[in-house]
């Protein structure tokens, strides 16, 4: 039997909001250590890696490893049925054909169950090599969302240029061009407002706005986002999910034709 309970269903709602624009379906791997998802968008340009540790759940039981293929749009619809303060429990039997989402109101006067059919999916786990990144940036997630949104008006892609002066995001297109520079700011009043730039080597990379604007949907999960970059390798954009895990997005760069 598999059973995982989260007092705050809002966390799971936010996780779904953070992946539903990139993925139509995904395999949820459940084991003793927790729930993991690794899935690419249909164009194989970006990859979502989600990890929810078992010790982060309020109750967690997984008697045997399960691979459950789920429709992300259906799961998203179901989670929209949860009240903001509801507790959520995911439950499946061994060799399941479906998974049940159980929502319970805070004072336990309402209990709703939604059963979702599982789907058969081909596994295509990619091997992601260990990389030491030449530039790692931590910044407020709201700021990153804003930059992606604002610069998307000017072009289809954003160039990230990191130097010892800071990081510069730029975009250009038919209407003109725009750039936004950020310098390190560790004196911010609040930790979540800090900008931390750890640069070993300067770099310049270009990424498609379309995907970046999907990644920033994870902003409500965490006040800070971490961007890890090296020349000519995919960007890693990471958001922590409270004390329970993280969501990492990988994005293949655009390179000179």
């Amino acid at each position: 039997m598999f059973e995982a309970r989260l007092v705050q269903s809002a966390i799971l709602k936010k996780v779904l909001d953070a992946v539903k624009d990139l993925l139509t379906e995904a395999t949820f791997e459940c084991s003793d250590s927790g729930i993991q998802v690794q899935a690419m968008d249909s164009a194989h340009v970006s990859l979502v890696s989600l990890n929810l540790r078992s010790d982060g759940f309020d109750k967690y039981r997984c008697d045997r490893n399960l691979s459950m293929g789920m429709s992300i749009s259906c799961m998203s619809k179901i989670l929209r049925c949860a009240g903001a303060e509801d507790t959520v429990t995911l439950r499946a039997w061994d060799n399941p054909e479906s998974i049940t989402f159980i929502f319970e109101s805070p004072n336990k006067d309402k209990l709703a169950e939604y059963e979702m059919k599982l789907i058969n999916m081909d596994q295509e786990h990619l091997g992601i090599p260990e990389t030491s990144y030449s530039c790692v940036i931590k910044m407020p997630s709201g700021e990153f969302s804003r930059i992606c949104r604002d610069l998307s008006q000017f072009g289809e892609s954003i160039t990230f240029a990191c130097s010892k002066e800071g990081i510069k995001f730029s975009a250009s297109g038919d209407y003109g061009s725009a750039n936004i520079k950020l310098v390190q700011n560790t004196d911010a009043d609040k930790e979540e407002e800090a900008v931390v730039i750890d640069m070993q080597e300067p770099l310049k990379l270009t990424f498609a706005c379309r995907y970046l604007n999907c990644f920033v949907k994870a902003g409500p999960l965490c006040n800070q986002v971490q961007l890890s970059m090296s020349d000519d390798v995919p960007l890693v954009c990471e958001y922590k999910i409270g004390d329970i895990g993280h969501i990492k997005y990988y994005l293949a760069p655009k390179i000179d034709d």
Binding site: H44, V45, L47, E124, L126, P129, Y250, A252, P253
Partner: peptide, 14 residues
Amino acid sequence: KKKQTTLMKFFKAP
């Protein structure tokens, strides 16, 4: 003009 790469170029297929 820049061309979009895919992750297959960087990551190992199963």
